[in-house]
Amino acid sequence: MSIDGVLNVLKPPGMTSHDIVDFVRRIYNTKKVGHTGTLDPDAVGVLPLCIGRATKFSSYLMEHHKRYRFEITFGISTDTLDKSGKIIETGPTPSFSLDELRKVINKFKGEIQQIPPIYSAKKVRGKKLYEYARRGEVIEIPPIKVTIYELDIVEYRKPNHLLLDVKCSKGTYVRALVRDICKELGVLGYMSFLIRTESGDFTLDNSYTIEEIEEGKASILPVDTFLKLPSVVLDRHSSSRILRGQPVENIYNIENSQVKLYDGHRNFIGIGVAEKKRIRVKRLF
């Protein structure tokens, strides 16, 4: 019996996202497993995985916002911008007031331009940036647009440690955010801690540890639960046409939108595109 759905894993430190994928493949004896956004090996937190036929819809889950809690340690910079890298410089750590910190932090709210870290899997000219870094090659990295919806101070332990919460769009590099905040403050710093607390509807509260998964205590949930799209229930004739890849008449008062498609028994059968007169298939489950 095939397993199809989404598993919310609480990633521990020291494992790569690919390690988690391999672990889940072994536990559930399936090759079809994919993550919905990587976490660095040192990072912990929410890592939703799509299993079986749910992997066809992983790109939709990647669109969700993310929340992180992270710590900046001042006075030291590393080549990777986090604690896994080599120390490349040290310097003084001035004591900031909370007002000074908030003034700088507020500059990063909203849509911003961000240069991805050189030690990242972002592809430029067909190669991952870390490949250039490991070869010592200098390359111009084009900026990307990301959105910082919320950015708040949790705790400031003078003078070295600043703990923050951020809600951001997909593709945001928290390490790059740390780098840019430190640059604006005029102080060295690196990301010394990172936990992803939320990815769309996936939170720490509904995640499962490696141990719980091994013990069979984890729940795999239907992927359509997490697709933020209007629903259309089709009759038997329309369901049959959709499953053959054929369009159906749009009588559902929904236009210019992707929709979740269900048969008469409320079984999820895929995603369609609702146009003015018809609904055509986009992706079948």
Rank of each mutant, 00 (worst) to 15 (best):
residue 1 M to W: 03
residue 4 D to M: 13
residue 5 G to C: 08
residue 15 M to V: 12
residue 17 S to L: 13
residue 24 V to A: 10
residue 25 R to Y: 07
residue 26 R to Q: 10
residue 28 Y to H: 14
residue 29 N to Q: 11
residue 35 H to G: 09
residue 35 H to E: 08
residue 43 A to P: 01
residue 48 P to E: 01
residue 49 L to D: 01
residue 58 S to R: 02
residue 62 M to L: 12
residue 63 E to V: 00
residue 66 K to R: 10
residue 67 R to W: 02
residue 75 G to V: 08
residue 83 K to D: 06
residue 84 S to R: 04
residue 94 P to L: 00
residue 99 D to I: 13
residue 99 D to S: 15
residue 102 R to W: 11
residue 103 K to N: 06
residue 107 K to Y: 05
residue 107 K to T: 00
residue 110 G to T: 09
residue 110 G to D: 06
residue 111 E to Y: 09
residue 112 I to Q: 10
residue 118 I to V: 03
residue 121 A to I: 06
residue 126 G to L: 08
residue 128 K to D: 08
residue 128 K to P: 07
residue 132 Y to W: 13
residue 137 E to P: 01
residue 138 V to S: 06
residue 146 V to K: 03
residue 154 V to L: 15
residue 154 V to R: 12
residue 156 Y to I: 07
residue 158 K to Y: 09
residue 160 N to Q: 15
residue 161 H to A: 12
residue 163 L to P: 00
residue 167 K to A: 00
residue 169 S to T: 00
residue 171 G to Q: 01
residue 171 G to P: 03
residue 201 D to V: 03
residue 205 D to W: 04
residue 213 I to V: 14
residue 215 E to N: 06
residue 218 A to E: 12
residue 220 I to A: 09
residue 222 P to V: 04
residue 225 T to K: 14
residue 225 T to M: 13
residue 227 L to T: 08
residue 228 K to G: 11
residue 230 P to T: 11
residue 233 V to H: 09
residue 240 S to N: 15
residue 242 I to Q: 10
residue 245 G to L: 03
residue 251 I to V: 13
residue 252 Y to G: 10
residue 252 Y to H: 11
residue 273 V to D: 14
residue 275 E to V: 07
residue 284 L to G: 09
